[in-house]
């Protein structure tokens, strides 16, 4: 027992410094494709056709990236060939789905350091679940920021949804959302929860959580790294600003698409 305390003191704090300081360790993020100027319309065309989910949109000689639709297949990654977009190794990916509505439903300051999460796996492949689970480990240690999980939605403030919402999970997801007291927020994790991913919309799954319940914050990625989910929670309690989904070089790329 004494050894245990001593060892703890000797080891010191090993948790990530995020959000006070940016995380510098390598491998915490798979990176994200960002809009790139390719120099020729032909190359831009080829690149856009490479993307299986249509996240890369050609715009003349440039491509813009709708990161919300990216499934991290890496076909456009610089390592995979000459036709590649730029990669950005950031991890603060969480986006506000509807900024107006979010502003209207400002969470109380009291939630800033005590936020209870209810995680619902609505038909996910397991990747998002695995990443979300990392938040409880000593490295990401979400408890230090005042985030806790709860088994019952009656105590939950935030609903974390992963997966495309399979048919079997439609009613349970709806019930979970309704069982939560107001004020409440919904965070959709991963490409599937955002738009159905590679599974939906189809004969067994809908096209994302937003079809069933109102989603407030979206975390793109397939799967998003733990820090991206942590960023989403910080966005919910307004301790970090959200990042837009559509990316450089042109800011209006999404509307144009």
């Amino acid at each position: 027992m004494a050894d245990w305390v001593l060892k703890g003191l000797r080891t010191g704090i090993k948790s990530t410094a995020y959000p006070q300081l940016p995380e510098k360790a390598s491998g915490v993020s798979p990176g994200r494709p960002i809009g790139t100027s390719l120099g020729s319309a032909k190359r831009a065309e080829t690149l856009a056709e490479l993307c299986p989910t249509g996240a890369i949109i050609r715009d003349g000689r440039n491509v813009t990236v709708d990161f919300g639709r990216c499934v991290h297949c890496y076909r456009c990654h610089p390592d995979e060939g000459d036709e590649a977009v730029s990669w950005d190794l950031s991890y603060e990916w969480a986006a506000d789905r509807d900024q107006l509505a979010a502003a209207k439903r400002k969470l109380d300051r009291a939630f800033g350091r005590s936020l209870y999460l209810r995680f619902v796996d609505a038909g996910a492949c397991g990747a998002c679940v695995s990443e979300a689970r990392q938040l409880n480990n000593p490295y990401y240690n979400m408890h230090r920021l005042g985030f806790f999980t709860t088994p019952t939605p009656r105590n939950a403030d935030v609903l974390l949804v992963a997966g495309p919402v399979s048919d079997a999970m439609r009613i349970p997801l709806r019930q979970t959302y309704e069982a939560m007291p107001t004020p409440k927020r919904v965070v959709a994790i991963g490409a599937c929860a955002l738009f159905g991913g590679v599974f939906g919309p189809s004969f067994v799954a809908s096209g994302g959580a937003a079809e069933i319940i109102p989603v407030d914050v979206e975390v793109p990625g397939c799967p998003p790294p733990p820090l991206a989910i942590l960023h989403a929670l910080l966005v919910v309690v307004e301790r970090k600003p959200p990042t837009p989904l559509a990316s450089l070089p042109s800011a209006q790329s999404r509307e144009m698409a």
Binding site: V120, T152, P153, R154, I171, P172, L173, Q175, T176, E178, A179, T182
Partner: peptide, 12 residues
Amino acid sequence: LARRAVWAGGLR
């Protein structure tokens, strides 16, 4: 006052 069904772990 919002009245909701008893929470049954998502069962129908």
